[in-house]
């Protein structure tokens, strides 16, 4: 899944009418379809969404059809919509479809979005020289580059106490005071803690697997990146306890390495 920004600047405004048309900016998750097999899509979605800690509950999504250009098989839109609704996703439109796919999408009640912003994604830029029309090569081995809008950073300067939860939406989180047992700090981006980290830290909760956690004094109860978590039931291992560490994802594996 990728995150993208849809934009429309124009405002159509009339005084004293029942409706007003305005433009606004929304961040929508993009679902990149790489298979026309609804079964495979269903399986993969259930697997990923359980990990994503319910953050996609009732989330609007845009379906990206770019990767399906080269397949001959027709996509069964009604079956796809059923699978998405089963996963509590709300499809709002498609992008990068062929004219045939677009027509099918429209007849299924989905909007066809002109995916201009796709040019911003590095992966697409890389193949742009070879002509944008050419279907993108599948690179399942490489991690999908993610466009994270971390324009702001949330900074917390007072202790985060048991029972408190801090969430940095679309941002990094920096905490300069202790995070106590039973407290939870969550960010869509990276997390930095410049004091004892004794609670729970969850970075990249909306699926950013490049997010990292940096702790000056590691004593956490739980750490998680993009849904991959590790619980320290007794205590953190002796070699990292109270040490400065960084935590990142290597594939699906959570790596905790000392900062030297």
């Amino acid at each position: 899944m990728q995150t993208d920004v849809k934009e429309s600047g124009q405002v159509y405004k009339h005084q004293n009418t029942a409706v007003e048309l305005k433009g606004s900016v929304f961040t929508l998750p993009i679902l990149q379809l790489r298979s026309t097999s609804i079964q495979e899509v269903d399986y993969e979605l259930s697997k990923r969404l359980t990990k994503a800690l319910q953050f996609f509950q009732n989330a609007p999504v845009v379906i990206d059809l770019q990767a399906l250009h080269k397949t001959e098989d027709e996509l069964d839109f009604s079956a796809l919509l059923r699978v998405l609704s089963k996963q509590a996703l709300i499809p709002v439109g498609v992008r990068n479809g062929t004219s045939q796919q677009n027509a099918l999408a429209l007849s299924s009640g989905l909007a066809v979005l002109k995916g201009g912003a796709a040019q911003d994604i590095p992966e697409v830029t890389a193949v742009a020289g070879q002509g944008v029309q050419k279907p993108r090569e599948e690179k399942p081995e490489k991690p999908i580059p993610t466009l994270v809008q971390s324009a702001k950073t949330k900074v917390i300067n007072s202790p985060v106490r048991s029972g408190q939860q801090i969430y940095a939406t679309n941002a990094d989180l920096i905490v300069t005071a202790p995070v106590n047992p039973g407290a939870e700090i969550i960010a869509d981006g990276n997390i930095h803690v410049y004091a004892p980290m004794r609670g729970r830290a969850l970075a990249g909760v909306r699926g950013d697997s490049n997010a990292r956690i940096f702790c000056q004094n590691m004593e956490a109860e739980l750490v998680a990146i993009a849904g991959n978590f590790r619980v320290f039931e007794e205590s953190v291992p002796v070699n990292i306890k109270s040490q400065a560490v960084q935590i990142f994802l290597d594939g699906e594996h959570l790596v905790i390495s000392p900062l030297k």
Partner: peptide
């Protein structure tokens, strides 16, 4: 100590 920590959070919020 855990419960006092919780109360301190409530005092602050």
């Amino acid at each position: 100590v855990r419960d006092s920590d919780r109360i301190l959070g409530i005092l602050a919020a």
